[in-house]
């Protein structure tokens, strides 16, 4: 239970960073924190009490494994997160090139 709560706290930390920080890079870091909190939460839900790692080999029996599906899904989610992050970092670098700053308070041509 504590693990779940901690994951949710981590998620909120990420959201807080996105909402309150003014630096583009910090916003990206906030998003990554939240994303990884969700991934951790997903992995945590897969755990069964006393379960072993879900690797099939001649030496282990199939009994009492943790749920392997979330691991596969989280891998996919991580890949997607990687793509999003790479894109956002590239955008931030381009923005820095054009505006000469990472401060979102100074990057505001669009409003209304």
């Amino acid at each position: 239970m504590a693990v779940y709560v901690l994951c949710m706290v981590l998620f909120c930390v990420g959201i807080y960073a996105v909402v309150s920080k003014r630096n583009l890079i910090r916003i990206i870091i906030g998003i990554m924190i939240s994303e990884n909190a969700v991934n951790l939460f997903f992995i945590a839900t897969a755990y069964r009490i006393g379960g072993r790692s879900p690797i099939f080999s001649p030496l282990t029996d199939v009994q009492n494994m943790v749920d392997p599906l979330p691991h596969a899904l989280v891998l996919t989610a991580i890949v997607i997160g990687l793509a999003t992050t790479a894109l956002m970092v590239a955008l931030a670098m381009r923005l820095h090139e054009k505006y000469g700053t990472f401060d979102i308070a100074q990057i505001r041509e669009l409003r209304g």
């Binding site: 916003i27 994303e35 955008l91 505001r108 041509e109």
Partner: peptide, 13 residues
């Protein structure tokens, strides 16, 4: 770029 960054942040959320 500014719009795309905003969109990317909101979209990722």
């Amino acid at each position: 770029l500014e719009a795309a960054f905003k969109y990317a942040v909101m979209g990722s959320l």
